[in-house]
Design a protein around this nucleic acid. Structure first.
Length: 803
RNA sequence: GCCGGUGUGGCGGAAUUGGCAGACGCACAUGACUCAAAAUCAUGCGGAGCAAUCCGUGCCGGUUCGAGUCCGGCCACCGGCACCA
């Protein structure tokens, strides 16, 4: 009797074995492959099967690459600074340093249950001073390059987290973290000039092997648009108002102008009789939260009493204020062409402003306009010297024409804003800046980094716009590194994203205390070849990382411009129709499943649950199927171990087809069908074994190697049982030969009028005529004799068309 | 509103270039083994019909010898963006 499959014993044995005999070794000759997981923030609730999914996918892919002969960079670390960690610590009443350390050790234990081939020598932790030294160093470099600057402005403020937020962290007017409504607060903030990289961030997206969805999201977020700035003189005054427009072709149709209530001229443009109303409007607008402003779809506005002069035709057009114009996009002022813009149309209709059509629709002027005609196609009308031109052509040419006439210029605009980089919280990297009354903001000298985060008793956020660090006088008070005079430290900390924007560079040289990463190692091991994680970071982490990478490229630290060559977003796992979460009580913990079914089964089921890129529903009973499969294959392998069967024609064919099917599906990243493929071939082997009285070693061993990335423990055990002394991971991924899988006969379907009526076996070499006559015989009873057409698709189908 | 994604049995899901729809698995049913149960093995399993056969991939229409797949028009659900001039 063969030994039954005992997952506990096998998995324990091989986990120990791998610890003693690492299988992923850099011999200096192998090419590298860097497969990276988005590192987790060590939360208190631990991992559930949804988290496992990404880690299993990356591990399977990594081991596959290893079998293809790569030296694998497959590290893991901890994104441990930031709001979630701090909020958790506050809730539990412990210091974040302590709770973070505890959570790290728990999650590390759970991750080890996956038996992923992580190289723990490369581990990094963003809260480790030896790590954040370099996070601070990058900031200092950015400061020196003029990319980090201080500015007082109204920023997004989360009243619940009591800190400022970046634009990217505001979702539908709410805090990305806690969901509280974000308000505006005027604060002096550190900003990073990500906008300087807008064009490169956009351009370089093209060459990335990333999901189109993510590229699109980044493209939209950067929001590049082409247009023109046009200068309008204010009637009777020396003021000039510059507007930004993407539709300069419609300039003759501008019948009014709207300024954002925050526009610098807003107040001064108000004439005596309009002053009270204007000031009232500006005040009310300032009181609205961004959510209110978003939700008030009905247009509001107030007339200033002043007029601007359209520089093309010298017409006077009224200047209004309205909060549908955003102060921080373009110039904060727009020219309004109600005939060709929905929002302007709505506004003009509501306030009785004239509407002048300048583009003919279907060659005509619209009689009773009920909505704006927003297409840039049609002939220009009512447009002076532009009459008769094609709008789409004019749209492109107008900026230069305007520039020549001297009242405007061609411009490009972006939605992307500079990155609000300071947080009024304790648990983050201190910003390494000293404020000196004489020298201004001075960076902490590079050799003095890391600037340690002081240990404190009370680290609760103050809510005043000041960081808790501001209370620590002995820390705040220092001397200026420049002139030596008494000075004060910057007390804001960096956002959660600071460390994660570059951590992937550090893994490969995590003990280097002289450089962020050595040139040699960077060249040898970077960049990341495959990056696996959830889609939720599409415009946060993934954009910031690209920005940091480009900056580090510019200052010569690294020699590549993009951090992640290929990106894969795994879908989420839900249960009972909801995302897995503690509060919903639908969390499935892997610990118990590993105990009952084993890590190998859980790994397989994580893949089998559905296409890896789509969200999937967890079925508690589903794991039984893969567990049975492993048991069945184990039994087949054990039963045939000592039979000494020789390969037969049939098993050779099966072997080559098996390799082909698994490899093709794996390359296509169709991991769920790889698993079903294994099951299919397992069933087929049972069939053949039954027929032949056994099956050859060669086929079993091939299957075992193919399984190794998926079920490393049981594959290793079978490999050893088959008499091999070396690790299965030192083997090469098997290759297939098309010539060895051709069949003598093939089965084709026989259709009449496109409907399948029968099947027929024909020689693989059969000609069209032979195939058709065999097919006719198979459906002879159903033929009317009135055949119109006969179609033969080689190897697949014969279709007989009859009346 | 705009942009993506998805829609196939009781369920999760398979289906090269258009070529036998439902692979594989779960659940279920029947049988074998068992005193019995579990496990395992075998068989069946889209719907209607005794059957021949007919109907079936969100809905309507089209192209084609042939459509889950292509084209046109809708519907539903999920996700992203949302007054960006």
């Amino acid at each position: 009797m063969a030994t039954p499959y005992n997952h506990k014993e096998i998995e324990r044995k091989w986990r120990d074995n791998w610890k003693k005999n690492p299988v992923n070794v850099d011999d200096g000759k192998k090419p590298k492959y860097y497969c990276l997981d988005m590192f987790p923030y060590p939360s208190g609730s631990g991992l559930h099967v949804g988290h496992w999914r990404g880690y299993v996918i990356s591990d399977v892919w990594s081991r596959y690459k290893m079998l293809q002969g790569y030296y694998l960079i497959h590290p893991m670390g901890w994104d441990a600074f930031g709001l979630p960690a701090e909020n958790y610590a506050i809730k539990m009443g412990v210091h974040p340093k302590k709770s973070t350390a505890e959570n790290v050790s728990n999650i590390k234990r759970q991750i080890n249950e996956i038996s992923a081939i992580y190289d723990w020598d490369m581990e990094v932790n963003t809260t480790d001073p030896e790590f954040y030294k370099w996070t601070q160093w990058i900031f200092v470099k950015m400061f020196k390059e003029g990319l980090a600057y201080e500015k007082e402005m109204p920023i997004n403020w989360c009243p619940s987290c009591k800190t400022g937020l970046a634009n990217e962290e505001v979702v539908n007017g709410c805090c990305e973290r806690c969901g509280a409504q974000v308000t505006k607060k005027n604060l002096k903030q550190w900003m990073l000039k990500i906008t300087k990289y807008a064009d490169r961030l956009l351009e370089d997206l093209k060459d990335l092997d990333w999901p189109e969805k993510v590229k699109k999201m980044q493209t939209d977020w950067i929001g590049k648009s082409y247009g023109a700035e046009v200068d309008f003189k204010v009637d009777g005054k020396s003021d000039v108002i510059t507007v930004y427009t993407t539709r300069p072709d419609t300039l003759y149709g501008a019948t009014f102008m709207v300024l954002a209530p925050e526009h610098e001229l807003a107040k001064s443009l108000a004439t005596e009789e309009n002053k009270a109303l204007v000031e009232d409007y500006i005040y009310k607008a300032s009181m609205k939260s961004s959510v209110d402003r978003l939700q008030d779809k009905e247009k509001t506005g107030v007339f200033t009493g002043s007029y601007a002069i359209n520089p093309l035709n010298n017409e006077k057009i009224p200047i209004w204020l309205s909060d549908y114009v955003l102060a921080d996009y373009g110039t904060g002022a727009i020219m309004c062409v109600p005939a060709h813009d929905d929002r302007d149309f709505e506004f003009a209709t509501k306030f009785g402003i004239p509407i002048i059509q300048v583009i003919a629709k279907d060659g005509k002027e619209i009689e009773n306009m009920t909505e704006a005609y927003t297409e840039a196609s049609g002939t220009m009308i009512n447009s002076g010297e532009w009459n008769g031109m094609e709008s789409s052509v004019l749209k492109k040419e107008a900026p230069e024409m305007i520039e020549k006439k001297g009242f405007g210029r061609k411009t490009v605009n972006y939605k992307l804003r500079d990155w609000v980089f300071s947080r009024q919280r304790y648990w983050g990297e201190p910003i390494p800046i000293v404020h000196c009354p004489k020298c201004g903001a001075v960076p902490v000298p590079e050799e003095e980094l890391p600037l340690l985060l002081p240990e404190v008793e009370s680290y609760q956020p103050t809510g005043t716009g000041e960081s808790p660090l501001a209370d620590i006088e002995e820390w705040v008070n220092t001397t200026c590194p420049c002139c030596g005079a008494p000075a004060k430290r910057e007390t804001n900390t960096m956002p959660q994203w600071a460390g994660s924007s570059w951590y992937f560079l550090r893994y490969v040289d995590n003990k280097n205390n002289k450089e962020l990463v050595s040139k040699e190692k960077a060249e040898k091991y970077l960049p990341v070849d495959m990056y696996i994680g959830g889609v939720e970071h599409a415009v946060l982490h993934l954009l910031y990382s690209r920005f940091y990478t480009k900056f580090l490229y510019d200052i010569g630290v690294i020699n590549f411009k993009e951090p992640f060559t290929r990106l894969f977003n795994q879908g989420m796992i839900g249960k009972d129709g909801a995302k897995m979460s503690k509060s919903k009580g639908n969390v499935v913990s892997p610990d118990e499943l590993v105990n009952d079914y084993g890590c190998d089964s859980l790994r397989l089921y994580e893949l089998f649950v559905g296409p890896p890129e789509l969200d999937s529903e967890w079925d508690d009973r589903g794991i039984d199927g893969v567990y049975r499969f492993i048991n069945r294959f184990w039994k087949l392998a054990m039963d045939n171990k000592d039979k000494g069967m020789a390969p037969t024609d049939e098993t050779v064919k099966i072997r080559h087809r098996l390799i082909k099917d698994i490899t093709t599906r794996l390359e296509a990243f169709s991991l769920n069908t790889v698993v079903s493929g294994f099951m299919e071939y397992n069933n087929k082997m049972y069939e053949v074994a039954k027929k032949q009285g056994g099956i050859d070693k060669e086929l079993i061993e091939t299957m075992t190697i193919l399984l190794a990335p998926f079920t490393p423990h049981v594959a290793s055990e079978i490999w050893e049982q088959y008499g091999h002394t070396g690790s299965i991971f030192d083997e090469k991924w098997p290759e297939y030969d098309e010539a060895k899988m051709v069949e003598d006969t093939i089965e084709i379907a026989v259709q009449i009028n496109g409907k399948t009526k029968n099947t027929v076996e024909i020689p693989a070499s059969a000609s069209k005529e032979e195939a058709i006559s065999a097919a006719k015989e198979a459906v002879s009873g159903k033929l009317t004799g009135n055949i119109v057409k006969e179609i033969y698709v080689p190897g697949r189908i014969v279709n007989i068309v009859q009346k």
